[in-house]
Each structure stands twice: as C-alpha cells, then as structure tokens.
Nucleic acid binder design. Structure first.
Lengths: 332, 332
DNA sequence: TTGAAAGCGCTAACAA
DNA sequence: TTGTTAGCGCTTTCAA
C-alpha cells in the first residue's frame, strides 16, 4: 500500500498540489473554505508529508552522529553515550542512539537504519560476532560514512578505535591482590560477546596464572549466581570481577553465604560506575574513564567528517586505574 | 558551502551522473578505468550520497519510532526504553533514542531532529518546562505525527499518556510506614523538572501531612548530600525517597553518620531498579513496572500510526506496588 | 487566490 | 559501456 502523498490529497480535495502545500505551510494566501476542505482531506486520508522531500533534497540538514550501543541500560555504556553526546553537541552535532541489546542482527539493522536516516558518522560499540562477521560495516564504507569503534574488533575493518587498556588494568588489580597477600584469586569472567572479557581475563592470567577462571557474565544476576556456584567448589580469598555489576551481585551472594567482604573475601570490580562508591562496602575497582571514551570517539568522528581526506585511522587507548576502596584488604 | 552532489563528481570525472550512479551501486557494467577515475573523484571530493534521494522519495522506508528521554543514563528510563524497544520490534518498528539530558532546549531540538529524520511516531518523556512551554509539540501536530507521552504534562497537548499512579504509590508507602509505628517521616523530594516529584510528594502528604519535605533531586549524590543536611536539623525515623538512587545515596549518608538502616532509620525508595534488591541491605521500595510502561507506550504509538483516524487519546495509568525488603522495620 | 512547472539528488529504464 | 531522461514528494517561483 503506497504511502499517501500530496497528490492524493490534492485530487481528493479537488485542488492543486501547490494549494495543499500552501496549506501545509500555513501560508495565508489560501481561501479559508479551501483550507478547511484540504485540512479535512488530510485528516481523512491520515496524510503525513515525507519529510525528506519537504526539505528540498540537498538542503542542509541537522548534522547528526549515530551511536550503536550493545545494551542501553548498562550504566557503563550509558556514561559513554553521555560523553559522546556532550562532545557532539559542542561541535554542532546531535547524537542519535540505537541499541542492539546484544543481538547481532539488531546491530546490523541499526547500522542500516542510521545510514538510511542520513547520519554523518557513526560510533559503534560492536558485538563480537560468533562467526566473526564484519560485513555490516561495508555499507558504511560504501557510503563513505566515517565510523569509530569503541572496544574495537581486533580483526575488524580498518577504522579508528577508542578503547581502554583492559589487560593492563586487570593485571594491575591482580598484582595488587597478590601484593596484599591474597593466596587464591578467582576471576568472574565476562560474556562471550565482549572483547573486553577476553582482555581482562588475559590481564588476570598474566599476573596470576593459577587464577580460577569462572564464567559469569556482565550483570548483577549473573554475578550473584556465579559466585554461589563458584563457592560450592572453591574458596578464593579474592574475587576479581568482570565489571562492577558482577561484583555487586557477587557481594550480595557472599553476604547470603555469610561471608564478609573484605574480611573473608576481597572483591574487586571493573569500570567504577557511579554507584560503586555509594555501597555500604564501597567497591575497590578499576576505574574506566567512560565519558572520556565517549568524548574522544565523538571528537574523532567529527574530525573524520570535517577533516582532510585520507587521514589514517586513529587508535586511542586510555588508561584504566585502580581505585582502592573498602572491599579489599591487606592479608599480610 | 553546498554539499557535494553526484553532479560535481560527474563533471569532475568527466562522465555522466548515470555512470557515477552505476559506480556507486556497484553495477558491473562500468569500464574499470572509468570506475577507478570516478572512485578517485569521490575520494577527492569526499562525496557522500544524500541517502534520502537514493531511496527514490516515497519508497517505503524502515518504520521507526523516536524516543526522547530526559536522562539516558538513569536506569529508570533505561528500562522504559528497553520495554519500548521490545514492543516496537515486535511490531516491526525500530526505536531511535535521543536524550535531552534535562535541558529543555535539547528536548525541543531532539523533536525537531527526529521529525526531520522522518520517524513514524514519537514517544516522549517530557521535561516540565519552567515556563510551561509546550509548543515543541506543535511541529508533531502540524506533521500529523502521533506522539505518546510518558509521565505526561497535565496541561500539555492532547496526547496519549502512559504513566503510573505516583500519588497512590507514595501514599501506600507512607501509610505502611505509619502503620508500622514510624513517628517522624521525612520525604526527600524529587527535582523541579519532574511531574513525578510533584505527585509523589502529594502522595506522602496525603497520608502524613506533618511529614518533613526536604529537597533532594534524583541522583545518588543528591540523596547523599540531602540526607546529611536533613539530619543536621531533624531526626526522622523513616525517610521516603523520591527514587531508589536517592535512597541508596541516603543510606550511604546514614552509614557515615553511624546510623543503622533500618534499626535507627527506615528507608524507602521508589522505582525498584534492579540493583535495589542486590544491596547489602535490600531496599524497600515502590515498584514501578518500567518495561511495561515502555511497552504500552510503544504499543499505543504503533496503534496511532496504523489504526483508524480520530481515535481519542488513551490514558494508561499503571499501578505502583510496595515491595517490602530489609530497609524498613516495624517499630511497634 | 489558485494552478502550472521547475528543480532538489538520485536511481532506473532506455537509447545511443 | 555510457549518456539521457523521467520521476520519486515536495516547495517555490511565476502566471493566470
């Protein structure tokens, strides 16, 4: 079924399309009876102008950056979005967000939709496709639309990337646990779709090759359930979690097992989301400059839109720093 | 400075626009030398096709719903977005999100941008403008674009609304505190830009006219600072907070003052965000069906796009239910 | 006050 | 293999 157009309205109302257009744009040259008739037909046919056609093709449009995120409700990504929006606005761009909710097909669709919406550049936080697919970026390349990756794919397309040094961050935290006398370290590992999970695990193992690697995920629930399972089979004196949400879930689980943090078990998170410092046992964690990640991604995106052609992709790697709070202790 | 068009590329490359178009669309009828030349010029001029023109105006586009939210990083709104996206996808629509970050001008801009991007309907979680402005919706009305409000403006435009019964929820929680023997109830009030803040306050006062109303806000930090200030001047035995984040911030503040929850002070939140049940003292709160709010809003939006004309606006009011956990106690 | 027609950037059909 | 042209939905002159 064709979309109703201005022609349909015009013929139905028995006027020319020019007249309908005049009504649409509220010009006062229109006879009031004609106007009423046109408005009635618009209502009757439920007519909506195609916006792209109104702005006379090629008229400068609002400048926009698209952002495709994995999980919009994750406070980690939310802060990155906020940072990206800040920077985008500062440079005269609007930020439009779509979430793949960790479903690969949705990520592909989101890119397509944003291209269709004529964004000027894209920031993407890509999923690690099980089959290593990266052809969703072909459309961007074909349309000459710059894109910046956050948490980039190692074997992905040649594109600018903003990321943090996960391996080093995880290694630093692990080193700290060892130095403060912890004997048995467990790592609650992140989800399979995340490049960060791989890197953080590697960081832990680089310092503590004996560490227990236990699968968890990225959420409160997953942290909670994982720790209950883990404690059935092992008695670690420190748990380094994939992220703060997992750590908070784990602390809850430890509480139910009547284990005290940090007296019985030290817990370390990753990300330093805002709530981590507001817990009754404030969380030791590896701080990730989330807003800065967003800001830099947006800055690079704008630079690639406006800058000279052919600049090589940038690769920004931000530091993640250990933030000591009350959930860890010295066991020496 | 005009945007580079296909004509520019064609003349610069010394070919017709048809040939450039063929190259753009990867048709193999193009001589490889010609193709190379065209691609060089595309690169040189940094040409990007206007997407709206490509899809031959009027060609069915991806169906999309816009969502303008107040604060994208607030877990409360994030869950509403997730619910809206679920429902939108189920019905064949994509969800595009923009955040006003509580700045009224950004809300106005976001609406304009989404209209320009030709969304089919809009879901909005509007700010309470200090001056009561609502003309940002005129553009939607003029374009015959349905819109659904979440947390609607009482004196706003005639539009469908999905909301919860805040007053009743707050009243129920207050009643519970009174019935369980609390003598002195304080309410940490929400921000001025929020209609919910007004309603929740009214709910508290309807049951406890003597309640101390203390301004806080909507964030962890605000709850934390507010409770420190409040406790300087009053000694409530129960604090009912605008939302869970404020409650969590307040509990942190109480902890620093060496007050125990719930032994010394009961604390009640509002919203029941996920983390509230994972705290070391799980939070008693008023549960808000956030995903359901989003789902219903999306369902109504789609209905207004596709349904028969002239259906009157719907007004959905969902119940908020008290969830008892460990942060409150019986003082009798 | 209205209608007719050019033109926005692009694709696709057809002609050369 | 390439060029020419109609047409997508709309706005905006310009004429009537």
């Amino acid at each position: 079924m064709r979309r109703t157009t201005i022609k349909d309205v015009a013929s139905q109302a028995g006027v020319s399309i020019g007249t309908v257009s005049a009504v649409l744009n509220g010009r006062d040259s229109v006879n009031s009876l004609t106007k009423v008739r046109v408005l009635e037909v618009i209502e009757e046919l439920n007519y909506r102008p195609v916006e792209a056609a109104r702005r006379r093709l090629g008229t400068p449009r609002e400048k926009t950056l698209g952002f495709v995120v994995k999980e919009i409700h994750n406070p980690y990504f939310a802060d990155i979005i906020v940072g990206a929006q800040e920077e985008a606005l500062r440079r005269g761009y609007r930020l439009i967000v779509m979430s793949s909710e960790k479903i690969f097909e949705h990520e592909v669709d989101a890119i397509r939709v944003l291209v269709e919406k004529d964004i000027d550049a894209l920031i993407i936080n890509p999923l690690l496709a099980a089959d290593g697919r990266t052809d969703q970026f072909d459309r961007l390349i074909a349309n000459n639309i710059p894109f910046v990756m956050i948490e980039g794919l190692t074997d992905g397309p040649r594109a600018s990337t903003v990321d943090i040094d996960n391996e080093r961050g995880a290694a630093t935290a692990t080193r700290y646990l060892l130095d403060s006398g912890h004997q048995k370290i467990a790592h609650l590992e992140g989800p399979a779709y995340s490049q960060h999970a791989v890197e953080r695990r590697a960081g832990v193992l680089s310092e503590a090759p004996e560490a227990i690697i236990f699968p968890a995920g990225a959420t409160l629930k997953e942290g909670y359930h994982a720790v209950l399972e883990l404690l059935k089979i092992e008695q670690p004196d420190a748990i380094l979690c994939y992220n703060d949400l997992v750590a908070i879930g784990a602390m809850r689980g430890l509480g139910e097992l009547e284990l005290r943090v940090p007296e019985d078990v030290s817990v370390v998170g990753f990300d330093d989301i805002e709530i981590s410092s507001f817990l009754s046992v404030p969380l030791t964690t590896v701080g990730v400059p989330r807003r800065e990640i967003g800001r830099q991604a947006a800055a690079i995106a704008v630079h690639e839109i406006e800058g000279p052609r052919g600049t090589p992709p940038e690769r920004v790697l931000l530091e993640a720093e250990l933030v000591l709070r009350a959930s860890t202790t010295n066991r020496r």
